[in-house]
Design a protein around this nucleic acid. Structure first.
Lengths: 247, 247
DNA sequence: GCAAAAGTGTTCCGACTACACCCATGC
DNA sequence: GCATGGGTGTAGTCGGAACACTTTTGC
């Protein structure tokens, strides 16, 4: 934290005063519906001013004694039940006049939003409908105009998701322990669009050596049964920091 | 900003109350001394509690009506005079108990730090010594233990710098308009360590086509004079988003 | 048998590595 | 001349793209 020098704040010629902040956390929560080949983002309906009746990203204000990340996990836990997830900080939006409430507030209280990016396993994610609030998975392509600057935050989160997929093994946080290479491939194409031939994707990944063939076969409808693979985190270790592992 | 739902904050079973924040901005300001092949970071000496007499990253608290980025630019402008720079947000550190002052404060005021990463042109960067405060460029390898968690922030900033160099044309923000390919190469090796043969670096970059040879030669001591090149931002455009352009 | 999905192999080509070598200057 | 740094060229190799082909299932 801060190496702030109050001298500047209090002693400058302008004699400006410090702003007081409430800090909010907003989550961009993605999941991939591989069955329908759709990338989904979680939205909730607002029931208070401002922006009543509009969709927005799930968020909350940070409470006393609570870290930013704690707050992010709390929002998530209030909205969905899920076992496996990946979460990381995205960006902090904090200019003045970004929240209509600032105007009405007594004196100069600002609202700042620290956004988080999350990826959850779609199959096991169970939305918590509390009967009042709307909550829904929206296909990314069909997201409506959101409250605040949440469309911007979402856009930012989507960029991060694509980067994460290319460079890091996030995909395995969100796949079952055992998965087929098609599962993996589908996840990638759903998020990134067509980016590579399946057979090339396959051989490239297998050559890297951190996917272990369990030998177990699984048949899904017609076609030849597929092998179930398992991700070996230890074998992946050497590839940390190395650019462009997947893809 | 927030799609916060006060309901959670005020109405949960725990009935916890919102935290009030002061928001600080801390800058990791890098520059590259190509003459001595050193990567430098700007540090300032603290004169107030806590951590009096220790070095830290230059920072400030955000004032009323001021955006986070404005605050970041303000700190920078107070410390150095510089024309060309690159600045972007790094990360937000905001857990409770990260700042000793929180304990003493009246009631639950938290200190949160939004860190920024900057790269400035060393040759033209003139430090502003106000006679009181210590301020200095530190070679990255010789940075002492810093106040707060600033070593951690610095580490984070260094990682970002290396990534930026590989993927984006930040280097040109910090080089003169006209530069030799050796200048460019030196900058890269100083930051990244030895990463490539000079002649390969050279031909790879030239083939990409966004460096224009002005034909003007410049002689620096012994050896054959070098051509001055200019970075063509338009010609670079197609490489945005593309991975690993440099290196 | 045929379609569908999984998995294998092959060919081509561009890019990167590692050098060796030429060029222009200061002294 | 010779040391120094700038600049060019080339041979070998690795890896990715494209695509043809085989295998194993359901129907």
């Amino acid at each position: 934290m801060p190496g702030r020098t109050p001298r500047h704040a209090a002693g400058s010629s302008a004699r400006r005063i410090l702003a007081d902040f409430k800090v909010g956390v907003d989550n961009v929560i993605f999941s991939v519906d591989t069955a329908q080949n759709r990338l989904l983002v979680l939205l909730v309906m607002r029931h208070e001013d401002p922006y009543v009746g509009q969709w927005c990203l799930p968020g909350t204000l940070v409470q006393q004694g609570e870290s930013l990340e704690d707050a992010a996990y709390r929002v998530l836990a209030e909205k969905i039940r899920v076992e496996n997830l990946y979460l990381e900080q995205l960006y902090t939006f904090g200019g003045p006049n970004r929240d209509p409430r600032e105007a009405k507030t007594s004196f100069g209280v600002r609202y700042l939003s620290v956004s988080y990016f999350a990826l959850v396993r779609f199959a096991e994610a169970e939305l918590i409908a509390d009967g009042v609030s709307g909550i829904a998975w929206y296909p990314l392509k069909q997201v409506p105009p959101l409250a605040f600057d949440h469309n911007q935050i979402l856009e930012y989160g989507y960029r991060r998701l694509r980067n994460k997929l290319e460079y890091s093994p996030v995909a395995f946080e969100v796949l079952p322990d055992l998965f087929t290479l098609s599962d993996l491939y589908q996840l990638y194409t759903t998020v990134l669009g067509d980016f590579s031939d399946y057979s090339n994707f396959r051989s490239r990944l297998l050559k890297l050596g951190f996917l272990h063939d369990t030998g177990v076969k699984v048949s899904r409808g017609a076609g030849r049964p597929a092998s179930l693979y398992r991700f070996d985190a230890d074998a992946f270790a050497p590839f940390k920091d190395k650019p462009l592992v997947f893809i």
